[in-house]
Amino acid sequence: MKRWLERRNWPLGTRGATVLALLCLGALCAWWLQLSPSGLIPREGGVKLAGQFFARALTPAWDYETPPPEGTPPLVMKALEGARRTVVFAAAGMSLALVFGLLLGFLGSSAWWPQRMRTSGVGPFVWTVARTIMVGMRSVHELLWAVLFLAAFGLNSFTAVVAIALPYGGTLAKIFSEMIDEAPRDSAGALRQLGATGTQTFLLGLLPRALPDMWAYAFYRFECAIRSSAVLGFFGFETLGYAIKQSFENLQYGEVWLYLWTLFGLVVLVELWAASARRRFVA
C-alpha cells in the first residue's frame, strides 16, 4: 500500500488521477447523500419567498419597512453602525491573533534556534509543543469557539474577540512559522560569516526577508476576520449578522439586502486596500 502510494508514475499521471478521483468521490458522495435535482426546486412557500427575496436585490430598502419605535436612528445609520461594530470586533480579534501568531510562529519555526539548542533537544521539544497548540487552536472553527465560550462565560464582548483570535492566531502561527523557515537565507548567511550572533542574524538577516509575506498574509486574514465577525452576529453579538438575521426573520427583505450590500462594500473596500498595499509591499 505504502509503496503504491509513494510511487512516481500513477496511471493517468498524478494530476489526471487527482481530477478523476475528485470527480468520482464527488459523484459517490452525492449518491450517498441521495441528492436529486428536485431538491433544488424550492418547496411550497419557498418559491414565493425566493421570488420576494431576490426581487429586492437591486432595490434595497433605504428606510425601515415597518415604522420603528420613536427615536430609532435611520436605517442607513443602523447599517453603518453594524459595519463599524463588525470592523471593531475583527480588528480587536485580529490584533490579539497577531500576538498569538507571532509568539507561536516564532516558537514553532526551527530557523532561529541556535545550533546547540537544536541538537540538544530543547528546540525540537519547544517547537513540537508550539505546533501542537497551533493545531488545536486552528482545528476548531471560530463559531464553535464562540459556542464553547458562550457556554463557559456567557454573552460578552470578549467572547467574540477571543473566538476570532484563537483560530486566526493558530492559522497565522502556522503560516508565519512556514514563512520564516522558507525565507531566503542569503543575507542571514552573510551576517553569520561576518560574525553576527544568532539573535542579530535572525533579527536583521532572516526576519526582514520573511516580514513582507507575513504582513501581506496577516492583512488577507483581516479581510477574513471581517467576514467571521459579521457571522458572529448570528450568535447574538451586535454585528451585521445580527441585523441580517433579525430583518430576515421579520420578512423585511429590503433591509436584508441593504445589510448584504453594506457587508459587500466593506469586504471589497478592505480587499482593494489590501491588494494595492500588498503589491507595493511584496515587490
Binding site: 447523500l33 431538491g39 433544488l40 419557498g46 463559531l143 459579521a230 448570528f234 438575521k245 448584504l260 457587508l263
Partner: peptide, 23 residues
C-alpha cells in the same frame, strides 16, 4: 460578490428557501 458574502449567510438564506436538506 460570490466570495464577499460568507458561507454562513448564504446557507441561512438558502435554508429558508429550500428547506433543511443537504442542498
Amino acid at each position: 460578490y460570490l466570495r464577499a458574502i460568507p458561507e454562513y449567510i448564504w446557507a441561512f438564506l438558502l435554508v429558508a428557501m429550500l428547506g433543511p436538506s443537504a442542498w
